[in-house]
């Protein structure tokens, strides 16, 4: 079973993402801020991480860099953020993300991308 890590600080968004991932057959891990995400990554190796940027404690860019440093290419990272400026997106790819999607997002597009990256 493939593993997915959802990192967001909005409970309702987590709830929707959790539903979508479970339906697609993922084992789901949840982190509510950056540092929680890092400690999960330390123990598990998720196949894909859906990552918010603006979070308390450690921001998404830092988490992404950490994941890429620890896990290399084996863990894919998709940013899912309300930050939609060109510079924000560039920064996301610079920190090693595999894809960047802005909120609000299309559930279909997201799941398509997740499937694409995990196969």
């Amino acid at each position: 079973m493939k593993k997915v890590l959802i990192v967001d600080d909005e409970p309702n968004i987590i709830m929707s993402l959790e539903f979508l991932m479970k339906k697609s057959g993922f084992e789901v891990f949840i982190a509510r801020d950056g540092s929680e995400a890092i400690s999960i990554v330390d123990n598990e190796t998720p196949h894909v991480v859906v990552l918010d940027i603006m979070m308390p404690k450690v921001d998404g860019y830092e988490v992404c860099k950490y994941i890429k440093k620890q896990k290399g290419l084996s863990t894919k990272v998709i940013f899912l953020s309300a930050k939609g400026k060109e510079s924000d997106i560039q920064k996301g790819y610079d920190s090693g993300a595999d894809f960047y999607m802005t909120k609000p997002f299309s559930t279909k597009n997201l799941m398509q991308k997740v499937d694409e990256l995990t196969n």
């Binding site: 929707s16 993402l17 930050k83 909120k103 609000p104 997002f105």
Partner: peptide, 21 residues
Amino acid sequence: THEMRTPVTSIRAFSEILSDN
């Protein structure tokens, strides 16, 4: 606007879930 994106994101996500399932 950024702050408004958060509820809109949830609303859209659940609406899509409801109509797709």
